[in-house]
Simulated assay, not measured.
Amino acid sequence: MPVTLSPAPDILLCHGSPSDDDVFLLEEDGGSHFHPSSEKQIRHKLGSAGAGLTLCGHTHTPRVVRLSDNRTILNPGSVGIPRFGCDRQSGCPLCPCHAQGHTMVVQPSYGQL
């Protein structure tokens, strides 16, 4: 499986980061906990990837980040395996509305998604 996939113009999918499946794109590993990456850290991990919408995973932690250049980075979380103390599944329905800055992560009770 490729490290990245681009299913549509201006959309990039990756598991960890565009260059490394094992690197958290939106979080930093603090040992016993994770903390959000800064925009500078995220830009560094994105490298030359310039998609308007990048979908990542790896941490199973839902988070949406809008960079100062209006690119959106989205980790929808996990439908099947919530982690890190989260007892809710999460997901993100995608539509063209993301281009206008409207991205939504839903977190129903486990088993309802």
Rank of each mutant, 00 (worst) to 15 (best):
M1F: 14
P2Q: 11
V3R: 05
V3D: 13
V3Q: 14
V3K: 00
T4M: 09
L5C: 13
L5E: 15
S6G: 03
S6Y: 03
P7W: 09
P7R: 01
A8T: 09
P9A: 12
D10W: 06
I11P: 08
L12A: 04
L12P: 00
C14D: 05
H15A: 06
G16R: 01
G16V: 05
S17E: 02
P18A: 12
P18G: 09
D20M: 07
D21M: 04
D22S: 07
D22T: 12
V23W: 10
V23H: 07
L25I: 07
L26A: 07
E28I: 11
E28A: 11
D29N: 12
D29F: 09
G30S: 04
G31A: 02
G31H: 03
S32F: 06
S32R: 00
H33Y: 13
F34L: 14
F34D: 00
F34E: 01
F34Y: 08
H35W: 14
P36T: 09
P36M: 01
S37Y: 09
Q41T: 14
I42H: 03
R43T: 12
R43K: 13
K45G: 03
L46C: 05
G47P: 01
G47H: 01
G47C: 01
S48Y: 07
S48H: 07
A49Q: 04
G50M: 03
G50Q: 02
G50H: 11
G50R: 00
A51F: 09
A51L: 03
G52M: 00
G52C: 01
L53P: 03
T54I: 15
T54V: 15
T54M: 11
C56F: 02
C56D: 08
G57W: 13
H58R: 12
T59P: 08
H60R: 01
H60S: 09
H60C: 07
P62Q: 01
R63W: 14
R63L: 12
V64L: 03
V65H: 08
L67C: 08
S68P: 02
D69S: 00
N70P: 01
T72V: 15
T72D: 03
L74H: 04
N75K: 11
P76L: 02
G77P: 10
G77I: 09
S78D: 12
G80S: 10
I81C: 08
P82S: 14
P82M: 08
R83E: 08
F84K: 05
F84N: 03
F84R: 04
R88Y: 12
R88I: 07
Q89E: 15
S90M: 04
G91R: 00
G91M: 11
G91K: 02
C92Q: 07
P93M: 06
P93T: 13
L94I: 15
L94Y: 12
L94H: 10
P96R: 02
C97T: 10
C97K: 00
A99L: 12
A99S: 03
A99Y: 02
H102A: 02
M104C: 10
M104T: 15
V106R: 00
V106P: 00
V106W: 12
Q107N: 09
Q107E: 15
Q107P: 03
Q107G: 04
P108L: 11
P108A: 13
P108W: 13
P108H: 11
S109F: 14
G111C: 13
G111Q: 14
G111Y: 12
